[in-house]
Design a protein around this nucleic acid. Structure first.
Length: 414
RNA sequence: GGAGGGGUGGCCGAGCGGUCAAUGGCAGCAGACUGUAAAUCUGCCGACGGAAGUCUACGAAAGUUCGAAUCUUUCCCCCUCCA
């Protein structure tokens, strides 16, 4: 389908579009540059992770097409916790934790946008600014009157929670109303007439659209992104061993790059569309690539995503490390992106490989490290070692590997 | 307020006095095969210890018992039905 606005065309072509309210009018509306749209992030951790990338990249696209992204951080709503499609209640966070997380998240957002006061410069707003000081009675009279419980319990997100015998607390039930209120605030105070969100946010977004219509008689728009899953059905961006963080304090650029280098074959093209700035027509040409050659695409994908978040400068070191670490090269000094661990020469007798593995955080416990070693998962300079192995005394650099992908440079110092 | 049913390892879910560090599934880790992919097969999967073993753990606390995830009491939490 062809849209009038360049933004919708590209968003749809790249796979960002799931559903929207009044598509035609919104399309028309977006033909004028400098429109505002917002998306909200809860601040439950001190960094964004790969799961947040889809909305972030959508916003980036929005800015690319001359519009103004409004990033809403949920300093207020995080205190409530969005219950949509969750079966456990979110843990309550203290004010200090929230403030701390907020700083971290802001940092994560910086590489994606141009911030400022210009027509299409992104801004960050915090809903704590208007939610924290709400007066209960006047809020109920002013806003609560527009919400019907009958209607709210009809929303899929609520129904799901109720039918699975989970408790939906009144606190959580209010999340929807507050999110609608956010939209209302941003519309009336900043003229922001579009809200983006994940597919699971549909109900919450529609609530906002309705609230604004009832209160102001104006039409605003909601736009949702499809729930993207891996080829194996898991939510995209979720890895098993914890989230893939965007903050470099939590995850070094090298590991971030590796995450993308290792995506499933079936997901490479999808990720190209969503997470890179590569032109749609260019990606189209890549769609025919099959089999082993996909590895090349994975490298491009990894490069492009990493460049956006960690800067293009970070790629050099990563490439050098990868070329050496995965080719059996013995040039350990070239693998600068690998973590390092130092051992003093005089301690060599008392320090075992297991000690190093645990101290460097490659295994969670000594038992874990031992099992790994027994199972043949530990290598020194690419040679599998066994329990009798002693660290050599005649070298000053060693490559210690746990499995084929996790490497550590062991430095023996005087 | 009343009656009933529950709370077990990251999750789901068995066990219902010793053989239980706890079946099974999922997730995870490693090995084989490959392409740093997927699928498949094999092994591992509480902590400490070289090992024997020790410790911690079946919602919390007390108790019965030689011995408790399993029995009793109290407490906390969740669910269902009734009012």
């Amino acid at each position: 389908m062809e849209y009038k606005s360049s933004f919708l065309n590209e968003a749809a072509a790249r796979g960002f579009f799931y559903q929207s309210t009044n598509l035609e009018t919104m399309d028309e509306y977006l033909c004028t540059k400098g429109r505002l749209a917002y998306i909200g992030f809860d601040i439950t951790a001190k960094s964004l992770h790969v799961g947040h990338l889809i909305p972030v990249f959508l916003m980036r696209l929005f800015q690319k097409h001359g519009h103004k992204p409004v990033i809403l951080v949920g300093g207020g709503t995080t205190k409530i916790g969005d219950p949509s499609f969750r079966n456990t209640t979110r843990p309550m966070l203290s004010d200090e934790q929230i403030a701390d997380n907020l700083e971290g998240i802001k940092k994560c957002l910086i590489p994606f946008f141009k911030f400022g006061t210009g027509e299409s410069d992104a801004i960050i707003v915090n809903n704590a600014d208007w939610l924290n000081n709400l007066n209960y009675i006047s809020f109920l009279r002013d806003i609560g009157t527009y919400f019907s419980i009958n209607r709210m319990i009809g929303f899929e997100s609520v129904k799901a929670k109720l039918s699975e015998n989970n408790t939906l607390s009144f606190l959580e039930f209010n999340y929807m109303i507050l999110q609608a209120y956010d939209f209302y605030k941003l519309f009336t105070e900043k003229g922001c007439a579009i809200q983006f969100g994940g597919q699971d946010q549909w109900g919450n977004i529609v609530c906002g659209v309705e609230l604004i219509r009832k209160k102001t008689g104006k039409e605003v728009f909601g736009f949702t992104i499809p729930l993207l899953t891996n080829s194996d059905g898991k939510k995209m961006g979720k890895t098993a061993s914890g989230a893939v963080w965007l903050s470099r304090d939590l995850l070094p650029a090298y590991d971030f790059w590796q995450y993308w280098r290792n995506v499933n074959d079936a997901d490479v093209i999808k990720c190209m569309y969503l997470f890179t700035d590569i032109d749609v027509t260019e990606i189209k040409k890549m769609e025919s690539v099959q089999g082993q050659e996909l590895n090349e695409l994975k490298k491009i994908l990894a490069d492009e995503v990493t460049a956006i978040i960690h800067g293009r400068d970070s790629l050099d070191a990563i490439h050098k490390t990868v070329e050496n670490a995965f080719s059996g090269s013995t040039d350990l000094s070239a693998m600068t992106s690998l973590p390092k661990y130092s051992v003093e020469k005089q301690n060599l007798d008392s320090v075992s490989v297991i000690d190093i593995i645990v101290a460097a955080g490659l295994c969670a416990s000594r038992g874990d490290a031992k099992r790994l070693l027994r199972g043949g998962g530990v290598y020194i300079d690419d040679k599998q070692i066994n329990e009798e192995y002693k660290l050599p005394t005649d070298k000053n650099l060693l490559k210690l590997s746990c499995g084929k992908k996790k490497h550590l440079i062991v430095e023996i110092v005087e």
